[in-house]
Write a protein that binds this DNA or RNA. Structure first.
Length: 520
RNA sequence: GCGCCCUUCGUCUAUCGGUUAGGACAUCAGCCUUUCACGCUGAAGAGGCGGGUUCGAUUCCCGCAGGGCGCGCCA
């Protein structure tokens, strides 16, 4: 896209074209019928109600798996309704935001096949606008200057902890006269949160969630250096960007309450919210960066196909009846907020692998060679390969692919299974293969080699016929001949179908490898 | 500590008060077969606990237990 709504990311004062039309917040369904739009008597949202979602990562690291799923859900929701998904880089933490992280995130999204509409918005570039909104709140008496020092704040928390009270700012500057301000202290601007009543978030996944306003303290809007905090910036940006649906991890659920208060103070409509459960590690513990959570580029390097990861991710926390396999089109057509569950899911590599195997088996041969090539710089060197396939190896790989892709669950396994294609002669035999090639086996190879040499043409059909005929004459089972041949040709006891291996290797290489193993 | 959220096979999930609680991955057995894999067939495997409400609770309500998240001049 990038049409009239596209935001200029780095302008001095990047004002957005105000969203031309913001749908009023829909009545929310109760928790009870949250999953069943029809039952709630709500017709599907009409297409004219353009949905605008956003993915808003903070560039302090790579795109981790939870973020990838959040992006996917946002993307799916927008695509499902013919809306737009925006990308906003939340880089207001100048200390921790890096360009490398931004690059990694964009790269990860691209690899996953998730695109966004318009230019990515860099939140920090909009600081002036955020400040303007904070000042407006100040002018309207909905915010105030707070001169409490870090030490005071820390002490406040300590005391609250000791007295087993909630850890909150006590509002000491809320109604204090500014004339009492200590000299030389730069104040922060705090939001004047309501003291009475309650704040309700009607969440499309979590249902109706209520907080007593006594639980929510006066958060900082503007730091003492005048820069906006995340809590202010998200609200202003989501509003200015015309975001209608906020889909994010449920670690933001409490933030949703505080942000709702800010929206209301500003007189703005609160977007539809959907807080999705977090993804945990296999052990049920949280899948955090410090526990080795991986960036999507790590999944790429482990040999997963983006469509497999996408399919795995979409089913983690979301379901559509019993369907497990979803093409991108099917996902888009079926995706709905109501299908998202509320409990955290564990990440299961085994299932991801099974799914990846499925997608590999159904993938086009040439595409798999290309996929292999994209990660070859990462996984090739340790396997004796350069960053690109030599032409003849590439051709062999392509020819062997039908038999190869059937028995691998990742691209790394695929490459390993294909290693006999470029193995140097004489082949190093693995343990089982070495054991299998006993004297009798070598004798059979000796018998067979001239027969194979005489074949014209030399292909899977002719070699198979020759080997079968030999087995019959010798009065042995086919396996007793085939396994030694497999061991001699691939160095292993398992491989793609033997006669396909011979055909791919070609007459010369086949005979040479057999000759290598004739002596014990 | 305070608040909020969660709890169905090992894992991901279906279930809209009445089902032999279904599917997928994994596991086990068998078939297929030149190996492995694929595929096919079959088996085993689940509603955390305690109270309600109801003719009937996995489903609704309450409590408990367990787990998660939040409580920054981080996002």
């Amino acid at each position: 896209m990038g049409g009239k709504g596209a935001a200029r990311a780095r302008g001095a004062h990047p004002g957005y074209a105000r969203a031309p039309f913001r749908p009023p917040p829909k009545c929310f369904r109760s928790r009870r019928d949250r999953r069943h739009p029809r039952a709630a008597g709500k017709p599907p949202r009409p297409m004219s109600d353009t949905i605008v979602t956003r993915f808003a990562p903070s560039p302090t690291g790579f795109l981790h798996i939870g973020g990838a799923r959040t992006a996917l859900f946002n993307w799916l929701l927008a695509r499902r309704h013919g809306g737009r998904m925006l990308l906003r880089i939340e880089d207001t933490d100048r200390e921790r935001s890096t360009d490398a992280a931004i690059a990694a995130i964009l790269d990860g999204l691209g690899w996953l096949g998730l695109d966004w509409d318009g230019e990515a918005v860099h939140q920090f570039a909009r600081a002036e606008r955020h400040r303007e909104v904070a000042l407006r709140l100040l002018a309207e008496g909905k915010a105030y200057h707070c001169y409490a020092s870090q030490e005071e704040l820390a002490e406040m928390r300590e005391r609250a902890k000791a007295e087993k009270r909630p850890l909150r700012y006590d509002g000491r500057w809320r109604d204090r006269d500014p004339s009492e301000a200590p000299p030389g202290v730069k104040p922060v601007v705090r939001f004047k949160a309501p003291l009475e009543g309650e704040t309700v978030v009607e969440d499309r996944v979590q249902g109706k969630v209520t907080w007593s306003n006594k639980e929510l303290d006066d958060l900082v809007l503007l730091r003492s250096d005048g820069t906006p905090t995340y809590m202010l910036a998200v609200v202003v940006d989501d509003h200015d960007m015309g975001v209608t649906h906020i889909v994010r991890g449920d670690d933001h659920l409490t933030n949703a309450a505080r942000q709702s208060q800010i929206y209301r103070a500003l007189g703005w409509d609160v977007p539809v919210m959907a807080h999705i459960p977090l993804i945990h590690g296999a052990d049920g513990a949280k899948l955090s960066k410090r526990h080795g959570a991986l960036g999507v580029e790590a999944y790429r390097a482990m040999g997963y196909l983006p469509e497999a990861l996408r399919n795995y991710l979409v089913r983690l926390g979301w379901a559509h009846g019993d369907q497990e396999i979803f093409s991108t089109e099917e996902m888009i057509a079926a995706f709905d907020l109501g299908g998202i569950g509320r409990s955290a899911a564990r990440f299961d590599f085994v299932k991801l692998e099974a799914l990846n195997g499925h997608y590999m088996r159904h993938a086009d041969d040439a595409r798999l060679v290309e996929a292999l090539e994209t990660i070859l710089p990462e996984i090739g060197p340790e396997r004796g390969l350069g960053p690109v396939f030599p032409p003849e190896l590439r051709a062999r790989l392509l020819a062997a692919m039908p038999g190869l892709k059937e028995r691998a669950r990742t691209l790394v396994e695929l490459l390993d299974a294909a290693s006999f294609l470029w193995a140097a002669r004489p082949l190093a035999l693995d343990e089982k293969a070495g054991k299998l090639l006993d004297d009798g086996a070598r004798a059979r190879i000796r018998d067979l080699r001239p027969r194979l040499a005489a074949l014209e043409p030399f292909d899977a059909a002719t070699t198979e016929a020759a080997v079968r005929a030999y087995a019959e004459e010798a009065g042995v089972k086919l396996g007793q001949v085939a396994q030694p041949l497999r061991a001699a040709l691939t160095g292993r006891t398992t491989s793609p179908p033997l006669f396909d291996v011979m055909a791919v290797l070609g007459r010369e290489e086949t005979l040479a490898r057999l000759a290598d193993q004739e002596q014990s």
